[in-house]
Design a protein around this nucleic acid. Structure first.
Lengths: 343, 343
DNA sequence: TTGTATGCGTTATCAC
DNA sequence: GTGATAACGCATACAA
């Protein structure tokens, strides 16, 4: 009874004894097909539940209407916000989004790039793993003329479009705020040495100190490897031992800051009176933890949406002019003041 | 200088003055090609940086090696864990994953299904929106013989493979635990009326009361619409007004439970001594909030990985035997006891 | 207004 | 061992 075969233009054509071309044109609303024929085609298509085989269309048109995004990990508020932004905007423009994770692993990232190239996606959005900067496989994307947009975790050495925030300024704002509420000795639990935004946040920290003539003390800087809750906890413990008189902490990200808060809470150290803490990213947790965490709001969703729009521009420019756009969009961040810095 | 054209079998063949067939065979390691020829092909392929055009391959083999997953929203710890599991397992098996969101909207979900069907994905994994159950568009997936696996938010009315937890039992465990620590009057901030797991958790709540001969009081049940932090906060406020003597709260999910905790904290109501609170899902936040939230651990990652494996089984069964597997896998949940229920 | 022919890149069949 | 040929489903240039 049930027609198990998937309907194609051909099966419609055969049913009506007309050519595949006419069916194709009718379905696409071309003007050079008679209203009568068109209606017949439409009816049969409806009846057969026809949907175009998009693989064939992709093959024919050389566009997959699919983009790939490679990020360190989906299970992370900031990255999933980015993904959300990308998907929403992509959807609006009829693009599909394939998600690949690098798990902060350079080899994995390389493999993912190869996969996407082979998959012939129309473009790629990437947030680099902490291990990578100007690796060969990134250059390969460029060489292949595949539209590329880097987002948040970028490399300054790769010439392509980028969507970023001003990490240095944002970090400056955070530390400046700590100083303004009276902190004199501020520690920085920083990220790994390689990633650009980790570097920039560190520079922002340093600049803010400079700005207020507070001498920089490298022993107050603790570098995370995995940038996790535990490191926030452990480094704070170490910090409070090394420098019992510290009165402010700027953490590379909220997760680390929450680890810091937890240690301070455990030790009954008063926040913010004895030690003020500020994080970075503004993920949901920050607003419900006790004390509520001050932080820098990083517009993940918006960054994702912008990245897609920029990628689309790249794709069009590449098709039409055969060259890249290479624009960098810097989105604003906001200082969010909550209990952990409200003296 | 740079070869702007993407290398194909043909370009390799031309360079070597051999046939496309031979190139194809050589690249795929067929035995009926001489070692010499093979090496030459391999060398040129390497030199040209050849990667097979997978769109063409998909077209030819009628497999896209791509699956689609439709979930309510990515920016949610549980769902992103599921995605993580799906992606990791898919990657291991050389599949790509396209992610689509329904935003808890039935119309959107329907549209996403149509898109995936048209995209000719090899299979679909879905976590249903709160609005849907046995909608036509789900049946359409079945009718089209597209492998389908429902995960977590399922419909009992659709006959396909499923990956779930035993929501009723898990909820029973949670409420049973509240009773065991001495709670006599337990409220339930439940989910919407439609979703199966919201129903099952409610039933688990009721069964646990029954089990201990505690009369069920429907006025102690508050139904969320959006299942968010604010609802947790507001319903708890309402609850404490309606029933000042309540001593336990079972919330449909951690997010709601955290809203409840916040209200109780704000009102200086002692947790757990005056009111004990337990959530559901065990997302990261629960373990760092104050007081630390007791909850039910829901293995999102594992569910996602299982869902992919089951989908693969479906895909193979469909190809080989032309029929579905329709297996239901129920994963274990764990009761996580933390401060919010440690009297 | 309709239809014919061609090709996209790959793979499978079958002949040489 | 090798290669010519067809086929997958669709879109387009062009012919009728």
């Amino acid at each position: 009874m049930k027609e198990s075969k998937v309907p194609t233009l051909k099966s419609i054509a055969e049913k009506l004894n007309i050519s595949v071309t006419t069916v194709s044109k009718a379905l696409k609303g071309y003007s050079d097909v008679s209203p009568v024929t068109r209606q017949k085609v439409l009816d049969i298509a409806e009846e057969l539940n026809y949907t175009p085989n998009s693989i064939a269309v992709n093959f024919r048109t050389k566009q997959s209407k699919t983009i790939g995004i490679i990020i360190p990990e989906v299970v992370h508020h900031f990255f999933s916000s980015i993904i959300n932004g990308v998907i929403e905007e992509a959807e609006r423009q009829n693009y599909f989004v394939i998600i690949l994770q690098s798990n902060e692993n350079k080899e994995m990232e390389k493999k993912q790039v190869e996969l996407l190239i082979s998959k012939r996606v129309d473009g790629i959005i990437m947030s680099l793993s902490n291990q990578s900067n100007d690796e060969d496989y990134l250059k390969k994307i460029i060489d292949r003329n595949i539209p590329l947009v880097l987002i948040d975790k970028i490399s300054k050495l790769i010439d392509c479009s980028k969507v970023i925030i001003d990490d240095k300024k944002a970090a400056f704002d955070a530390v400046n705020h700590l100083i303004n509420i009276g902190c004199k000795k501020i520690a920085h639990i920083r990220g790994p040495l390689n990633p650009q935004n980790s570097i920039d946040r560190f520079l922002g920290y340093k600049t803010a100190l400079d700005h207020h003539n507070i001498p920089f003390d490298s022993s107050l800087v603790y570098p995370c490897k995995r940038v996790c809750y535990e490191e926030g906890y452990d480094f704070t413990k170490q910090l409070m031992n090394d420098h019992p008189d510290v009165d402010g902490i700027f953490a590379i990200t909220d997760l680390v800051a929450v680890g810091a808060l937890t240690y301070l809470n455990d030790q009954q150290i008063k926040i913010p009176n004895q030690v003020a803490v500020i994080g970075f990213s503004n993920w949901f947790m920050s607003s419900v933890i006790s004390p509520k965490l001050s932080t820098i709001d990083q517009p993940g969703f918006k960054m994702g949406a912008q990245a897609f729009l920029l990628l689309k521009e790249e794709m069009e420019s590449m098709r039409n002019a055969g060259k890249r756009v290479c624009k960098t969009i810097t989105l604003n961040t906001d200082l969010i003041i909550r209990e952990s810095t409200s003296k």
